[in-house]
Amino acid sequence: MSAFPGSTSSRTVSASSSPGGGFSPASEYVTAAAAADGIPFVSPLTGGCYDAAGFLIATHGPFITSAITAYIGGDGVHATDAGHVCLARRIVAAIRELMPH
């Protein structure tokens, strides 16, 4: 069973199961899994836009960093309302990179 319609992949990933519990290995795995299934991918961690073949076609830098305190809630992890607006705008810009010109 796959999370993506038409995909035959049964890959699962958990950031907590990666070495050191960081998100970077999980993000790399999801990027590779998307390419293996021919699915374009936008990484919110790096801002990288990957086409269906897995080639990096553009980068927008990390979507939200801890340096932008107005976008991170009081728990230090989750985005605020303003953070979600920022994420939405960055994701739209990244998806435009993936659209045929």
Score class of each variant (00 low, 15 high):
39 I>K: 03
66 S>C: 00
32 A>D: 05
81 D>G: 09
4 F>D: 01
15 A>H: 05
28 E>R: 14
57 I>H: 04
5 P>L: 09
81 D>F: 12
61 G>Q: 05
53 A>F: 02
52 A>V: 02
14 S>L: 12
19 P>D: 14
96 R>A: 14
100 P>M: 05
22 G>V: 05
6 G>I: 06
13 V>F: 03
77 V>Y: 10
44 P>F: 04
13 V>A: 11
11 R>K: 00
10 S>Y: 04
64 I>W: 01
98 L>P: 02
65 T>G: 14
71 Y>S: 08
25 P>Q: 05
97 E>S: 15
76 G>Q: 08
4 F>Y: 12
51 D>H: 01
78 H>F: 07
51 D>Q: 03
11 R>N: 10
60 H>D: 07
30 V>T: 11
74 G>W: 06
76 G>R: 05
28 E>I: 03
25 P>E: 09
31 T>A: 15
23 F>C: 02
100 P>Y: 05
78 H>A: 05
34 A>K: 01
79 A>I: 00
6 G>N: 10
81 D>A: 15
42 V>S: 01
60 H>W: 09
76 G>D: 09
88 A>R: 09
45 L>P: 00
62 P>N: 06
47 G>F: 07
50 Y>N: 02
18 S>M: 15
54 G>E: 02
50 Y>C: 01
61 G>K: 04
86 C>D: 06
82 A>I: 01
75 D>P: 06
100 P>A: 12
32 A>F: 00
84 H>F: 13
4 F>Q: 06
83 G>T: 06
92 V>P: 01
88 A>S: 15
21 G>Y: 08
44 P>R: 10
2 S>P: 08
13 V>I: 13
39 I>P: 00
15 A>L: 07
24 S>Q: 13
7 S>V: 06
46 T>W: 04
33 A>F: 02
2 S>N: 11
72 I>T: 15
21 G>F: 09
44 P>K: 04
33 A>I: 01
72 I>R: 10
96 R>S: 11
95 I>W: 14
99 M>I: 10
24 S>I: 11
68 I>N: 12
100 P>K: 10
5 P>C: 03
69 T>S: 15
5 P>H: 11
27 S>G: 08
70 A>R: 02
35 A>G: 10
92 V>T: 13
88 A>I: 00
